[in-house]
Amino acid sequence: MGERLRVSTDDLHQVGTGLRTIATEFEGLDKLMDSYDRRTVGHDKLFERIQEFSDDWDDNRNQMIKDIEGLGTLAKEASKAYKELDTALYQALVGKGKKK
């Protein structure tokens, strides 16, 4: 029973921002894959494998972007909620909360 919940709201907010950055990087990967052609790769079979991977990646990448963005939003919202809760608890402890 002696355990405490400790949350770094700054870290949570930073995680949310970092996840958005990751999602943005994933969004730009399709342009990188499009920049490769048979001549750049230099081998037909290798180029075909890269194209195969790229096509499969496109299918899954969009869902991953949505999921990562969702996690980032949740982290930022959790940070805000913990800050609000902490403020409300402090105000209740020092008698500054709403009185009925």
Score class of each variant (00 low, 15 high):
residue 1 M to I: 12
residue 2 G to S: 12
residue 2 G to N: 09
residue 2 G to T: 05
residue 2 G to A: 10
residue 4 R to F: 09
residue 4 R to L: 15
residue 4 R to G: 06
residue 6 R to T: 10
residue 8 S to A: 05
residue 8 S to L: 02
residue 9 T to Q: 06
residue 9 T to D: 01
residue 9 T to W: 00
residue 10 D to K: 13
residue 10 D to Q: 13
residue 10 D to N: 10
residue 10 D to I: 04
residue 11 D to A: 15
residue 11 D to K: 08
residue 12 L to S: 01
residue 12 L to K: 01
residue 13 H to C: 08
residue 14 Q to R: 14
residue 15 V to M: 12
residue 17 T to L: 14
residue 18 G to W: 10
residue 19 L to Q: 07
residue 19 L to D: 05
residue 19 L to R: 09
residue 20 R to Q: 14
residue 20 R to T: 00
residue 20 R to Y: 06
residue 21 T to L: 11
residue 24 T to D: 15
residue 25 E to P: 01
residue 25 E to S: 11
residue 28 G to D: 14
residue 29 L to Q: 14
residue 29 L to T: 15
residue 31 K to N: 09
residue 32 L to R: 06
residue 32 L to K: 12
residue 33 M to N: 13
residue 34 D to M: 11
residue 34 D to W: 11
residue 36 Y to R: 01
residue 36 Y to M: 07
residue 36 Y to F: 15
residue 37 D to C: 08
residue 37 D to F: 11
residue 38 R to M: 09
residue 38 R to Y: 10
residue 39 R to M: 13
residue 41 V to S: 03
residue 42 G to L: 03
residue 42 G to Q: 06
residue 42 G to E: 08
residue 45 K to C: 02
residue 46 L to F: 12
residue 47 F to N: 12
residue 47 F to G: 10
residue 47 F to R: 09
residue 49 R to S: 11
residue 50 I to E: 05
residue 51 Q to R: 15
residue 51 Q to H: 10
residue 52 E to I: 04
residue 53 F to G: 15
residue 56 D to G: 05
residue 56 D to P: 00
residue 57 W to V: 07
residue 58 D to S: 12
residue 59 D to L: 15
residue 59 D to C: 12
residue 61 R to G: 14
residue 61 R to M: 12
residue 61 R to P: 05
residue 62 N to S: 15
residue 63 Q to N: 05
residue 65 I to N: 07
residue 65 I to F: 05
residue 66 K to S: 14
residue 66 K to Q: 10
residue 66 K to I: 04
residue 66 K to V: 10
residue 68 I to K: 06
residue 69 E to S: 12
residue 69 E to N: 08
residue 69 E to H: 06
residue 70 G to K: 03
residue 71 L to N: 07
residue 73 T to V: 08
residue 73 T to A: 14
residue 73 T to M: 10
residue 74 L to I: 00
residue 74 L to S: 08
residue 74 L to P: 00
residue 74 L to F: 09
residue 75 A to G: 01
residue 75 A to P: 02
residue 76 K to I: 04
residue 77 E to A: 08
residue 77 E to T: 05
residue 77 E to D: 04
residue 79 S to N: 00
residue 79 S to L: 02
residue 79 S to K: 02
residue 79 S to H: 03
residue 80 K to V: 06
residue 80 K to E: 07
residue 82 Y to F: 09
residue 83 K to G: 03
residue 87 T to P: 01
residue 88 A to T: 05
residue 88 A to I: 00
residue 88 A to N: 04
residue 88 A to V: 02
residue 89 L to P: 03
residue 89 L to T: 03
residue 90 Y to C: 01
residue 90 Y to T: 05
residue 91 Q to L: 14
residue 91 Q to C: 08
residue 91 Q to T: 02
residue 91 Q to H: 10
residue 92 A to H: 04
residue 92 A to C: 03
residue 92 A to P: 03
residue 93 L to E: 09
residue 93 L to T: 09
residue 94 V to R: 13
residue 95 G to L: 00
residue 96 K to V: 11
residue 97 G to M: 09
residue 97 G to H: 13
residue 99 K to I: 04
residue 100 K to F: 08
